[in-house]
Nucleic acid binder design. Sequence first.
RNA 1: GGAGGGGUGGCUGAGUGGUCGAAAGCGACGGUUUUGAAAACCGUUGUAGGGGAAACCCUACCGGGGGUUCGAAUCCCUCCCCCUCCGCCA
Length: 427
Amino acid sequence: MLDLAFIRENPEVVKAAVVNKREKADVDAILAADERRRALLKEVEALRAERNEVSKRIGIMKKKGEAAGDLVISMRQVGERVKEIETDLSAIDAQLGEMLLWVPNIPACDVPVGDEEHHNEVVRSWGEKGKFAERPAPHWEVAERLGLVDFARGSKISGAGFMLYMGLGARLERSLINFMMDYHSEKHGYKEVLPPYLVTRDCMVGTGQLPKLEEDMYHVGSDDLFMIPTAEVPVTNIFREEILSAFDLPVKMTAYSGCFRREAGSYGKDTRGLVRVHQFDKVEMVKIVAEEKSYEELESLLRDAEDILQALGLCYRVIKLSTEGLSFAAAKCYDLEVWAPGVERWLEVSSCSNFESFQARRANIRYRDADGKVHFVHTLNGSGLAMPRIVVAILENFQNADGSVTIPEVLRGYMGGISKIEAPKGA
RNA sequence: GGAGGGGUGGCUGAGUGGUCGAAAGCGACGGUUUUGAAAACCGUUGUAGGGGAAACCCUACCGGGGGUUCGAAUCCCUCCCCCUCCGCCA
């Protein structure tokens, strides 16, 4: 959410953000509602001031045993008028609040304007695309041959897009989670968190998934709870409605969670394999920082995510997203894309974003500086990383001519010491 | 799920219709004193919105929402959360 006073004073900046992000918020309607709201407020506050003052006098008169009937009657009328205005005011407040929830964050000034295809920027890349004698098999073939994922039975249990990992496939997934969690908590100094997977509507509004993305979310109607699409939601909302001390900042947290996405409207794209699924595992990093530090913290967050890819020995590139690629809530975002030779594509495995105070305003997360002044925090998060596509990259990059897959060295301790996944005997 | 008890400022906690944004204590901050510190003493100490050039003024907020009343932290309704006991359960 943007500061209403900021919108009032910089309507052109906000309108440009709406256009550049291809959003639909009506800034002029917001300004009109804001003006109307302030006029009503002025009126009702004057009436309330009068009523407060006279009511005080009535109390004193009654205590002395004096009659106050006339004053009571006239205040009854004032009260009725107050109630009328309050009704109008709460209608306009609700309307204004709803409109504000649809205003996107403003892209940072160094974010390229335009569509993703032409204006995303490759910032750097790391590693080499592996060389293969012939085109490597896509991961679903590797996974099936080695008995790592049972796609058919996953669909039988839960429908298309739900994965059933088996044997060493399940072990590989768990190893990756543990490896990443250990790395971020031990080497990068993040506090480990294990959050709930179901959150309230307020949390979803707080981090900006709602109202815009409601149809992409799994919703438990009987309790009005949402399955989290990312651990970002519960973890960022840990400090919702709180005022932190400047001395507690930066807060750095890392969390593993299942992530649940309906992916409505994306049928037909990436329907095979592990690239786009309804439920997946992800290790997330969240930072809560003072505003002057947030861009610095974004760069270090990005490096923390890159470290994982480098440790796994996977070739990747860093993309700075253009305005149209930015999510609704982000001011700036880097994507990490890993090379997958079997599907011959770069796959997004992390988004590292700075939300500035956008989420903090929605979730009301603030901090008190050394002088006692209260400010909104800046929030950031980044995947560190999303599992399924890392499994894709491992299976496709590290497959051998004999059909086996070599396990990256950093995972071997987590995999019970084995260095290769081989086809089950007799298969 | 049932029965009972609670939710008040950074914390503890008083307040059951009127001058209460809220006693008291603790903590924090500033000052006096001290070589320095502690103690003692004095003072300050919530958030947000609106108005104003400013000093400052007004309004709202005692878990959330609604109601009664001239007036609500206080009475009523409703929802949420916490505690105790019972039930159920991985």
